[in-house]
Amino acid sequence: MKILTLNFLTCARKACKATNAAFPLHPRDAELEIVETDLNPLFIRNILPRIEWDALREICVELGLPTLPDAAPEPAALFAEPIVPADTMQDADEGAEKQPTQLLQDLHRLLLETTIATGKLVCGNCGHEYAVKEGIANFLLPSHLV
């Protein structure tokens, strides 16, 4: 499971939906694996505003990854030249000509190439543990927990 996905995942239990403690899920006994994939600069530009930066920082600490800066990077820092504002990104090809910065490549490495191969994800509210095996998380709940 990509670190990107962990930044969107919450506990599946209905009782946890409304609490802040159910996000992010906390990795335990996690084995990480780098799975290389093609750089997709326009995807990173699209997804960056949706990343919960504080949760990402917290997860990086828990996984023993390098510490991230306090604040999320500005979209303008993803490309070497100034890009069109995000609200006029209809013209998808325009951004493609800009040169991805080191920052964008680092985000790609962290969000899309760093994966949890095995381990557990633990809910901070109810304590439920979701097992991850071969990168696949088991989110099936016994019916009394649904």
Partner: peptide, 15 residues
Amino acid sequence: GDLFLADAGQGVPFR
């Protein structure tokens, strides 16, 4: 893609 063993009838566990 990232794969989840999950039952959509139990909900969608994303924020």
